[in-house]
Design a protein around this nucleic acid. Sequence first.
DNA 1: GCTTCTGCCTTACTTAGTACGGCTGGCTTG
DNA 2: CAAGCCAGCCGTACTAAGTAAGGCAGAAGC
Lengths: 223, 223
Amino acid sequence: MAPPAEDTPRAPLTRDRVLETALGVADRVGVDAVTMRRLAVELGVKPMSLYHHVPGKDAILDGLVDRVFAEIDVPPEGLPWKDAIRLRCLSARAVLRRHPWATPLLEGRTSPGPATLHHHDAVLSCLRRGGLSLALTAHAYAVLDSFVYGFALQEATLPSGGDEGIAELAEHMVETFPAGAYPHLVELATHHVQQPGYGFSASFEFGLDLLLDGIEAAAGRRL
Amino acid sequence: MAPPAEDTPRAPLTRDRVLETALGVADRVGVDAVTMRRLAVELGVKPMSLYHHVPGKDAILDGLVDRVFAEIDVPPEGLPWKDAIRLRCLSARAVLRRHPWATPLLEGRTSPGPATLHHHDAVLSCLRRGGLSLALTAHAYAVLDSFVYGFALQEATLPSGGDEGIAELAEHMVETFPAGAYPHLVELATHHVQQPGYGFSASFEFGLDLLLDGIEAAAGRRL
DNA sequence: GCTTCTGCCTTACTTAGTACGGCTGGCTTG
DNA sequence: CAAGCCAGCCGTACTAAGTAAGGCAGAAGC
């Protein structure tokens, strides 16, 4: 059937193929399914063979985080800092929506990879070249990161079905409340979340613009 | 030695005592040390006995999260919404600094406890009674939560030594960089973080006030 | 005094990460 | 061309952790 010269029983194991497989498993089944044994099966190999290419499971998770950072789009050159940062934040959130399992890993992982470091450096570069002082840059950096990760984290725990999924969840939760308890949660759940046109996502741009405008104003005051 | 009438070999096991012990272990050793076996030892009991008082480990983690929420201070009555929310956010962050292990647990846990729900309801109540529309309340809620959790999450992964600890970490990291790479990270680390008077914490109030002012302005525009 | 029930224990299974050493086939080297 | 070496993979086994199933003993009630 196949040409006998190259039946390639399988490609040789490499760190890269391990990470590739891990990313696939995480996207398809969830990050909890990323176990050494599972990866071994998917690669047609025995568990301990993985250790010849990665130091251990932590290194795999570190590698996954770095791959996710690498997916964040780089904005075109020449944009004003505010627009460039805005695009980066939007892209970061989009990436984290594609890989919801990744968000809890982002923080908490020590030893950032090259893509991670490069991303952070690029953000700082953009702010500084926009004329922000070092002190204000540090504030902006901390604040924007916090917001983007925090928001992504909330989205990651929400049901995957998007805004209708949220509405469904809200209905479920309200049903379990003791009657009369948490009136404002109930109000929000029934009169807002379950209304047509609701979108949790809209809050992201709302908050992001609040922060960006505020940073811009602070920059104008030479802070 | 001891009075024979009541040597109280040990208090009876209860869900509350289990949670109490778990909280202690998490604070002293970290949340990873909260294992069923460890809790059993601390309570002078065998592991499986715990299951007669809690359904499983997840329930214990849920309980811990709820206890943490319960520690958030309630602001005095009669404050303007902005001040009241500000105090709540500051208190929430302070609580999460006391229990750094808790931050990654907050989101991701399904089935929130009564203290958690009550806290959320109180925040919503405050915003609505401040005159914010339901839509703006939803935005404000999502945005503030994201920021507070995101910031706390960053703090949780930072070294516990406070701002000097950060400076030390920054120095360490810079040393591992290839020469010339990540110039802006290096600049930030050496010319800002390691300067006397630096405080990562200051960024929290910076960002919080940006958000609160922005929300207030939006409320003024009757959004 | 016997029953029942509550509270704790015993045993054992499952999943995961990973330490340690063995085997083998292809490439280097004489 | 043959011998050997080594990179890459495998087998075995240990540890830690969650938890399912049933047993036993002392206290409370009939």
